[in-house]
Design a protein around this nucleic acid. Structure first.
Lengths: 199, 199
DNA sequence: GCCGACATGGCAGAAACTGACATGTGTGAG
DNA sequence: CTCACACATGTCAGTTTCTGCCATGTCGGC
């Protein structure tokens, strides 16, 4: 049994299955206009039994996690690709808008994200994905910002950056996604990092 | 039927019952060292039927809401009492530490809050209570800070203040509650509001 | 003392989960 | 090539959470 690679072949398959089920759930949610679809229905549409669904997603709402994890990873990857000579605020703006071609969302995605923002159980899952992003941002800011003494001075700016982004994004989503997202992000991040730089 | 007062007599009673059930749940959680107690047990200990429990708390985890709402209201009240001549950062520090005598938590409260921080379902309820605080903070900051043009410039600082406080508080709780909470809060709030004042 | 609003309780049932066991499929050793 | 084992899935029964419905009781006003 090969144990060399980090992601086992089995795990890779499980991950793909989870992603497929998540995608199915997303389509059902958007089609319904709400998130009340029963597990039985989602599982059937994805071609698995309810038992298998629950094996991969102990709590029903976990089903959207793969979607958020994917975008989190996209942001992290985009941030890695930005040269260190770029202004930190710009780098972060670029990273967060990289996943959206032209700063535009498809109507499908917009409806889905609106559901996620307006349903507290699902919003929590989004926030948990953001949590993982915090680590990435913290690592980036570590390189680009003067270091503080207390451990909080390392994690707090990253935490604030992520939450500021959330706030901006939620505002942008719920207000119709017509405003200039990059501009809003820039303003917000400048506000946050202005305080961090003072340290 | 008197409809003059805002909180109906009936509603007031319901609120008291909810608070009592919440308190009971808290005691059971702390005694058990985890939050897995069944609804049946909490309801019985509180002297109500499971049916009544669910009438007041549609989702089991909602049971802790009254506890967080109470402290949120305490913070809001403390902030109202601070004279407007006080430095905003100090005012917020005072407001948040007002509920804790000498910045100390009882061992009972510490154990409970540790459970709340480490259990995502319950953490969500805490965050929702914080959400209401955002409004209060936004109102306060409106009076004390220069106003920005975009609506985000009004809500974002409040949002960040609340989240920064959360982050500090969670760090403080999980690291043993031995550090100087007021000092940590002061540093964090200074960082946040430094950026806000720039606007 | 009567009436009506309202909260509670009990019961049946839906939906979300979980443990145990059996089946199928693929992969590596011999 | 075949056997054996690991592992994911499905089925089934059972627990827990949550909901609709109706009967009962209690409290406040007439």
């Amino acid at each position: 049994m090969p144990r060399g690679e980090r992601p086992t072949l089995t795990e890779r398959r499980a991950e793909e299955l989870r992603a497929a089920i998540a995608r199915t759930a997303m389509e059902i949610f958007v089609a319904d206009g709400d998130t009340s679809a029963k597990v039985e229905r989602i599982a059937e549409a994805a071609g698995v039994s309810p038992r298998t669904f629950h094996r991969h997603f102990p709590v029903k709402e976990d089903v959207v996690r793969p979607l958020f994890r994917a975008t989190s990873e996209a942001v992290a990857a985009a941030l890695r690709d930005v040269p260190d000579t770029t202004d930190p605020v710009e780098a972060l703006v670029v990273a967060w808008t990289a996943a959206m071609p032209g700063g535009r969302l498809s109507e499908f995605d917009r409806r889905f994200l609106t559901l996620m923002v307006t349903t507290s159980e699902y919003r929590l899952r989004w926030q948990e994905a953001d949590q993982e992003l915090c680590e990435v941002i913290a690592g980036y800011l570590d390189r680009r910002l003067p270091a503080g003494g207390h451990p909080l001075h390392r994690t707090l700016p990253a935490y604030l950056v992520v939450h500021a982004t959330r706030h901006v994004f939620e505002h942008w989503i719920t207000s119709g996604s017509e405003e200039d997202l990059a501009g809003l992000l820039r303003d917000a991040l400048r506000m946050v990092l202005a305080g961090a730089a003072v340290r």
